[in-house]
């Protein structure tokens, strides 16, 4: 297993390099450079500006620029934000934390919903319960996330007033537990919206896994041993069906991050997704570049997580 994991991590490096090259090229194609972002005096002498460019290495060949950019990125230096006149890293950090919590909470809801729904509809397939659950998944597939999120916001935020309609924490909550609860309170509605739509793939996947597994011959073996029906499911069917679900766990993370772009916007939740949209609108390219890079890294790490989890739970991989 360790060999597998190490090999898998080694494979990740070329992926990351490729990603960074693509992002770098995209960044180069965007108008403006590091100096444009420094809010310099408009009367500045162009010659002096050119000297500064030379000084900063902006006239160097692309590969030298690439390596110096990469060096910065590795130290957490993503350049300057034009609009905010702040280092991009400072700007992103707060948002990153918010998005992290949103994703975590969504992930929690996704699985809290998917596990029982998928297992129930798989075990009792073609019953009324199953029809209701699959009906829900079809709606989930069909409904666009941004419209669904808007409805959630309208009903539970504005009409019923059960949840806050924006922000990530109440102002002046002080610290400690109250602060924590306020955070959670703000997270519930956006993450639930995200999860209710995001979970349907997992529900369907789990359902078909359960249906497939329960027809396997080793399930018959279990029954022939005298394993009671309930234990046939808990001991054999469910465990074997969850395996492929564990494998998509990492990809789920990547999917949630892309989903969060809409949800954060709608719930005015100050996360990376919202920052991303804002930055595009005001053409704050250094921020956009940094975010694209981070989203890409998240996807690659998600895939890595999936493979590692699979290697831990599946003995057929574990042994090698």
């Amino acid at each position: 297993m360790w060999k597998f994991i190490i090999r898998r991590i080694i494979i990740m490096f070329p992926q990351l390099v490729l990603l960074s090259v693509i992002v770098f090229i995209l960044a180069q194609m965007m108008p403006g450079d590091a100096l444009t972002g420094m809010a310099l005096d408009p009367d500045m002498d162009p010659a002096q500006l050119e000297a500064m460019r030379e000084d900063l290495g902006l006239n160097d060949p692309w590969y030298i620029q690439y390596f110096s950019w990469l060096g910065g990125v590795l130290q957490g230096d993503f350049g300057q934000s034009v609009a905010h006149a702040l280092p991009v890293s400072d700007l992103i950090w707060v948002r990153l934390v918010n998005t992290f919590w949103l994703s975590l909470m969504s992930l929690f809801f996704v699985y809290i919903l998917a596990l029982p729904l998928g297992l129930i509809s798989g075990r009792w397939n073609d019953t009324i319960a199953d029809r209701i659950i699959t009906g829900y998944t079809y709606i989930g597939f069909a409904a666009p996330l941004f419209i669904f999120a808007l409805i959630m916001l309208f009903v539970f935020g504005f009409q019923l007033g059960w949840f806050p309609t924006g922000g990530s924490v109440e102002a002046n909550t002080g610290g400690g537990l109250a602060y924590f609860w306020s955070k959670v309170y703000h997270l519930i509605l956006p993450s639930l919206s995200l999860a209710l739509i995001g979970t349907v793939t997992t529900v369907q996947y789990l359902r078909s896994e359960v249906i497939e597994t329960k027809q396997k011959e080793f399930i018959l073996t279990a029954r022939a041993k005298g394993v009671p029906e309930q234990k046939v499911y808990t001991g054999h069917v469910f465990r074997n069906s969850l395996l492929p679900i564990a494998a998509v766990f990492g990809y789920e993370i990547a999917a949630l991050i892309s989903g969060s772009v809409f949800v954060e916007r709608i719930f005015s939740y100050p996360g990376m997704g919202q920052l991303f949209l804002e930055s595009i609108q005001i053409r704050d390219f250094s921020v956009v570049t940094a975010l694209v890079l981070l989203f890409g890294v998240a996807a690659i790490i998600g895939a890595l997580l999936s493979d590692i989890i699979l290697s831990i739970v599946d003995p057929r991989i574990r042994i090698k």
Binding site: K216, E217, F218, T221, A222, H236, R239, N240, P315
Partner: peptide
């Protein structure tokens, strides 16, 4: 079929 009659996990 002994290939499928045992739980692989």
């Amino acid at each position: 079929d002994p290939l499928t009659a045992l739980n692989p996990l």
